[in-house]
Design a binder for these strands. Sequence first.
RNA 1: AGAGGAGUGGCAGAGUGGUCGAAUGCGGUGGUCUUGAAAACCAUUGUACCGCGAGGUACCGGGGGUUCGAAUCCCUCCUCCUCUGCCA
Length: 423
Amino acid sequence: MLLVSQIIAEKSRFVAGLEKRGIKDAESMLDEVLALDKKRKNTQQELDQNLAEANSISRQIGALMKEGKRDEAEVVKTKTAELRSRNKELAEIKESTQEALKAALYNIPNIPHDSVPKGLTDEDNELVETVGDLPDLPESAVPHWDLIKKHDIIDFDLGIKITGAGFPVYKGKGARFQRALVNFFLDQAAAAGYGEIQPPIVVNEASGYGTGQLPDKEGQMYHITVEDLYLIPTAEVPITNLYRDVIVQEDQLPVKHVGFTPCFRREAGSWGAHVRGLNRLHQFDKVEIVQVRKAEESYDALTEMCEHVAGLLNKLELPYRILRLCSGDLGFTSVLTYDFEVYSGAQKKWLEVSSVSNFETYQANRLKLRYKGADKKTQLLHTLNGSAMALPRIMAAILENNQDAEGIRMPDALVPYTGFDRI
RNA sequence: AGAGGAGUGGCAGAGUGGUCGAAUGCGGUGGUCUUGAAAACCAUUGUACCGCGAGGUACCGGGGGUUCGAAUCCCUCCUCCUCUGCCA
């Protein structure tokens, strides 16, 4: 969440940033925060003063009791009743004000980076770069949902039978293909200095709040109500929350982690005919990279992460393009996000396979993720993450782009992992 | 899951109602000494909020309660340990 101190210091920049996102009443949102903060401070001042007085009286009573002056102590006691009830009242006001302030802050998204183009929908995203040639497929080329049936490598009907729509079953070479991709991505990340993590794939409510999925995207996560736990929508949640309430030692920085997990998304309201096959699923595999950085390094880290993702796509011989998300398409918690889309030749569509973001201090502020520098001051760190990569759409693009009369050719980089070069 | 025990500062570990934010030891930092290092000695060493500052307030697993006053008593939840049961 945003820092109140920064809202005070740079209110006009914050108003402009929120308006860029299309928020009409940005100024009044921030004014509400400021008013609540002021109220909280005033209440605390009075409360602290009263508590100091109450503490002082208690010490007096203690001293009198020690001296055996019981009667005098009893007299002093009578003075405290009023103070007590007032303090209880003030404590309640402070508590409720703090809750209101937090709720207000939870509902305000991050301020977009200056370089973020203004826009409303994904059509306004800025094309940064297109890399590779689009595949030149014959007329007979078919989309991946036909290929997987033909080669019997992924079965949606079986998934429907045992679970429901959007939970495919990977079989034989399809399963091996997916496992090969996971290992390839993990090895590539390890080589780039990311330490591997295998986190739990269910998280508690505090973790959901820490990275910002709650309360913003509550309806998008599977909620295990009997235990009040959530199935993760991305490994970002458990991995970044590893650092919740942590003051990192300076020599431990930068933090770089990679994790492979299944991801679960309800995708409520976003289903339709345009999301056939592997394009959108309720459960999918993803390898995620996460970095925790000092403020002054975080944009270099963002570039480094983008280069890592680009390197993966190059090795997989996939044509891709990089988009800078516009203000309207930018995630709630992000300052700057680059999306990577691969071209899937038979359905003739660009598919998002990675999203690389810098959250600056927005998550760190919720997480209380800080470090202590040489000057002994604790300060918030920046968090970043990116998919490297989301598996199903990569599979879809490889299947479609590499199809020929005999089957499907595996990219050279993957063959050591699959153990076969054709499906 | 049942019975019992326990959760204190970076770690270890005192403290069972009154200057306790908390003894002591280890560790960390600064210094004295030393050619240098070790040892020894001295000092310092949590986080957050409020305040221009002096300073104040809160925090001893989380939450609630009793009391003028709670690390200390009560309730509740969580976690860990031991025993019993179950289980990949």
